[in-house]
């Protein structure tokens, strides 16, 4: 009997600007470590792709504590881009990532166009990396990528530099802390981006009213989690309508239904972020949930779902 066969009749495969994913479920940078941290909770081989914690040329220590604050249905973080740096990433983290079956995307960050270009060039020399995700949007580091992510010309320049110095597919990750997200998307598309991911965190703040002090040592931080989902969804929809390259939806995704909303809005893939913290098996659950949804809706391919939103006038 066919339906008892392990092989599901539905096809979840998608292509993100040259990166072929077995399914559209990825894990977001900074929320999934370097993969290994989750090996006991989720089937790493079955995930569409892992985006690793943002890497800079030199290791970064990050911000002083307190770095995280829980907020209603969300959290603020001011990690400050703490990471092991390029050299240790390649020596200590990449070998494990190479041993798992899923696609590996390396998230990169820098203080200048030259730093992004250098990272792109060096990472392209190593086997086991399927793509780059350029973080032009992290709000945490005062000197960091914030200027790139809020200025279309700067964003385009970084994209061009990374493309020029890399043989890998390049995903540019947008900041939501802008007035016109479509303009940012068009700029990075013009810069040669193979795909766009969004959103990074929204800048927020929390105050301890007894001490009259900010809760985060950095004063401000990035808001993530279910609280940001409607904003992320709106921006993904706007960007998907503005560009012709694939879009990856990120922001508050924790369930199959969340992922479906983003796909219907026009995302070709999704990334799970904060949900990994409270539900480390979320990726597995969403992958099987997508299969079930397609079967129930008599769809054979997930691709038919992407951008299928009907905005025709409702009376």
């Amino acid at each position: 009997m066919d339906h008892l066969n392990n092989q599901s009749p539905v096809d979840l495969a998608v292509n993100i600007g040259g990166i072929q994913l077995a399914n559209p479920v990825m894990t977001a940078s900074g929320t999934f470590g370097y993969g290994r941290e989750f090996a006991q909770f989720v089937n790493l081989d079955a995930i569409g792709g892992i985006v690793v914690k943002g890497i800079s040329i030199e290791p970064r220590a990050g911000n002083p504590p307190q770095r995280i604050v829980e907020t209603p249905c969300g959290m603020l973080n001011a990690i400050g881009l703490e990471n092991v740096g390029l050299e240790r990433f390649i020596a200590q983290k990449l070998p494990y990532l190479r041993s798992i079956k899923c696609r590996v995307v390396v998230n990169i960050l820098g203080d200048s166009v030259e730093e992004y270009a250098y990272l792109a060039e060096k990472l392209s020399e190593h086997a086991g990396i399927d793509g780059l995700e350029v973080n032009i949007s992290c709000p945490n580091v005062k000197k960091g990528g914030v200027a790139f992510g809020t200025n279309p010309a700067m964003a385009q320049a970084v994209t061009e530099a990374v493309k020029k110095h890399s043989t890998l597919p390049v995903i540019v990750k947008l900041s939501p802390n802008v007035t016109d997200i479509a303009a940012m998307a068009k700029a990075v598309e013009a810069g040669g981006a193979d795909a766009i991911s969004l959103i990074n965190t929204l800048i927020g703040m929390a105050i301890d009213i007894d001490k009259r002090r900010p809760r985060l040592a950095n004063i401000i931080g990035g808001l993530s989690g279910p609280a940001i989902k409607p904003i992320a969804l709106r921006m993904v929809w706007q960007v998907a309508n503005a560009v012709s390259i694939p879009v990856i939806g990120i922001g508050g995704i924790g369930t199959t239904e969340d992922a479906l909303e983003f796909l219907i809005a026009g995302a070709t893939a999704v990334q799970i972020g904060t949900a990994n913290f409270y539900d480390p098996g979320a990726a597995d659950t969403i992958i099987s949930g997508l299969t079930t949804y397609l079967e129930q809706h008599n769809e054979t391919s997930l691709i038919n779902l992407i951008g299928s939103l009907d905005t025709g006038v409702l009376s």
Partner: peptide, 23 residues
């Protein structure tokens, strides 16, 4: 004790100051 988001070593949120100047 510190505030923690994951407990798994993934979020890097649970830092304290070490006496050697590192987190």
């Amino acid at each position: 004790e510190t505030h923690m988001a994951c407990g798994l070593g993934a979020c890097l949120g649970c830092t304290i100051h070490g006496s050697d100047g590192t987190y």
